[in-house]
Structures are given as structure tokens and as C-alpha cells.
Amino acid sequence: MTDIAAEPAPAGTLVQVNYRKYDGSLHWNLRMRRLGEDEHGTWLGLPANGVMRKGHNPEVPLPEAHVILFPRDAWWTAVFNDAPRTTEIYCDITTPPRWLSPTEVTMVDLDLDVLRKRGADLPLLVDEDEFAEHQVRYGYPADVIRSAEQSAQWLMTAVANGIGPFGGAHLPWLAMVA
């Protein structure tokens, strides 16, 4: 495993983003441009009309531009979507993102998601049923369950109150791809 802070790829470099399930199977995946880093982590961007895939299925079009924040040592990632997409912020509860190289990042999607719809004051916690089902199906260890639940709770508060990267830090990064 490579420490991205020690040898980050230059801005503009394509980065392969691989969300996986706990059994290692490929989940959502896409290629994005590295935009840069700040105190919140590494930012990648994709202009409007980009694509992503679920596993090895056909590409899914993404009409709006978006950026993803990969924080350091946190159990989540955060997507910030450009208008008019109705979901403004979409946070996946994951294992901490691991940079396998300067051009590949991966993490395990732990099912829980925190999202905020455009114009809404409060975020929503979704996919609790899937999280419960996958705890049994994949045998999530107790520390993984605890970390996922703590991250979801932190995100609910942070998104609701504009704490950290949820206070508008994404705007300059999104402007780079919008």
C-alpha cells in the first residue's frame, strides 16, 4: 500500500476509484481526475456526462458534475453533486479509503449512507436495512459495525451543522469540473 501523502499524483491525473463490498467484490467504480488536497483530504472530480459502473455492469451516465472527498483515516467518503441533481451530498459509510497507488483508491462500502437533498436542512440516514442484512451475510466484525455506526452518527451531525468539509469546502473543487 502506498501513502498518498508521501507521493500524490499531480493534479489532473486520472484515478481509478473502486468501492468494494466486504467480500471483496467490485461495487461502484469509476475514473476521476485528481483535483488536489486540503485539510479535509483528497478531492477527485468528474465533469457532467461522466460515467460509472456497478461491478462489471454497463456504464451508468452521470448527467451532473460531482466531486468526491476521500478523507484521511475516516470511515466515509463524500460526494458533492452539482445542480440540478436533487441529492446535493451523498456520504458512503466505508472502511477508511486506501490508496493502492497514486492512481488507485479503494474502500469497502458498508451500506449505510448519509445524504442531504438539495434545499433540505437536515440529512437522512438510509440503507439501515441493508447494513443489518450484510452484518449477517458478510459477518462484519463488531469493530467494523461500531466504526460504521459512529461514522454515520458523526456525519448526520456534521452535514446538518455544516461542520468540516460540509460547510462549503467542496465549492472551489466543484467549480473546477462544473
Rank of each mutant, 00 (worst) to 15 (best):
D3A: 05
T77P: 01
E104L: 13
V17E: 02
E59I: 03
A132G: 12
V126E: 08
F166I: 08
F131P: 08
P61E: 09
A48S: 12
N161M: 11
G139V: 02
A120P: 09
K117G: 15
G12T: 02
I89M: 15
D109L: 00
R34E: 06
G50E: 00
A148P: 03
T87K: 15
D109S: 11
T42E: 12
T77N: 15
P97H: 08
W75C: 11
E128A: 03
V114A: 06
I163E: 00
C91Y: 11
G45A: 11
Q16L: 15
Y140D: 10
N57D: 06
D73L: 07
L46D: 07
E130C: 08
A83W: 04
T87C: 02
F166R: 08
S151W: 04
E59A: 07
L30M: 10
W75V: 01
R118S: 02
R116M: 05
I145N: 04
M107P: 04
W43S: 13
Y22L: 01
E149H: 12
L100Y: 07
Y138L: 05
E128K: 10
R116I: 08
I4L: 13
A169D: 13
E37I: 01
M32T: 03
L14Q: 14
P123A: 04
Y19S: 10
M156F: 05
D23E: 14
I145L: 12
P8H: 08
Y22N: 05
D82P: 06
H134N: 08
T94K: 13
A132D: 06
M107V: 15
D111K: 15
Q16W: 05
L44I: 11
E64W: 03
E133F: 14
R33F: 07
T77L: 00
S101E: 09
D3C: 00
G24H: 06
V136K: 09
G12H: 10
W43V: 14
P58G: 03
L110P: 08
A142H: 11
T77R: 09
L110E: 10
